[in-house]
């Protein structure tokens, strides 16, 4: 749990504190469920828990709220009433952002090129719950840059520059997959098909693009490709990354078979 020294005590970030106490209550439920499974005649499940804590509030340099418990003989503390209740998985999913549906899950500070958004811009967006490039794009689709400027205080020009950066193709990862006994390279990224099916080069050589989508490409490396640079040419834009094909995936099956250290016993057993 992140803590910040301030004054005579240590303050803890509110969001970290809530997450920590939630994890503690999860452990309570796990332990009680375990007891119930061991056949005890009577046990209880925790439905609600609430605590009234004597705390002092503070804030750090970024304006984030910090929480510190009142010490001995300290007067004037606030009473924080915090209540937890049990909810189902369906309720959790209904009330949280669908991370798997985020078209561009990169963090805002991962935008390539010169940083168009300054630290305070990102903090303002963070307070609005906008933490990924995909969420920023969605916001720009639902409101004009001028409207966003009015609500967030981020200048239109900086916002437009960030959105231009966000629209460029980028490679975020890759993995080697085996199909029919030969290796293929799956390339993960964003905006990979913004100009149609892209051209892909491995170590400077064009390779076949077997399957393509905005966030995923499947290419067939040549037999001598082991490691090197990935280049994805999406129209006039180029995204780069690095690939590494493990030797065991490129070697023929005959070479992968381990050589026995001792000769197998002949039929008939030990003489």
């Amino acid at each position: 749990m992140a803590e910040a020294s301030r004054g005579s005590g240590r303050g803890f970030l509110v969001e970290d504190f809530v997450q920590s106490i939630t994890a503690q209550l999860d452990r309570v439920q796990d332990a009680l469920a375990l007891k119930a499974r061991t056949g005890r005649p009577l046990t209880f499940a925790l439905k609600d828990l609430s605590v009234d804590l004597k705390v002092f509030w503070d804030s750090d340099g970024s304006g984030r709220a910090l929480l510190r418990h009142a010490g001995p003989n300290e007067e004037g503390a606030s009473t924080l009433q915090i209540a937890f209740t049990t909810i189902t998985r369906a309720m959790v999913e209904e009330n949280t952002v669908a991370m798997a549906q985020d078209a561009d899950p990169r963090r805002l500070e991962e935008l390539p090129g010169m940083p168009s958004l300054q630290d305070e811009d990102r903090q303002r967006l963070d307070l609005l719950g906008i933490r990924t490039v995909g969420q920023l794009k969605q916001l720009s689709q639902e409101a004009s840059p001028k409207a966003v400027e009015t609500y967030t205080g981020i200048p239109v020009l900086r916002l437009q520059a960030a959105l231009q950066q966000a629209a460029q193709p980028a490679i975020t990862g890759n993995e080697v997959v085996s199909r029919g006994g030969r290796p293929y390279l799956r390339i993960f990224g964003v905006n990979l098909t913004r100009a149609g099916k892209p051209e892909v080069r491995l170590s400077g050589e064009p390779v076949e693009v077997v399957d393509s989508g905005p966030s995923e490409l499947l290419v067939r490396p040549l037999s001598h490709h082991r490691e090197g640079q990935i280049e994805v040419m999406a129209g006039e834009h180029r995204a780069t990354g690095f690939y590494d094909v493990p030797a065991e995936l490129v070697a023929p099956a005959e070479l992968r078979r381990p050589t026995p250290l001792v000769e197998p016993l002949a039929a008939g057993g030990v003489p």
């Binding site: 499940a45 925790l46 439905k47 828990l49 609430s50 605590v51 009234d52 804590l53 001995p72 003989n73």
Partner: peptide, 17 residues
């Protein structure tokens, strides 16, 4: 020492399982 921690309060609602 005479130093006393301010008391907080915890409430639990449980159901039999």
């Amino acid at each position: 020492t005479g130093f006393v921690m301010p008391h907080s309060r915890m409430r639990l609602r449980c159901a039999s399982a």
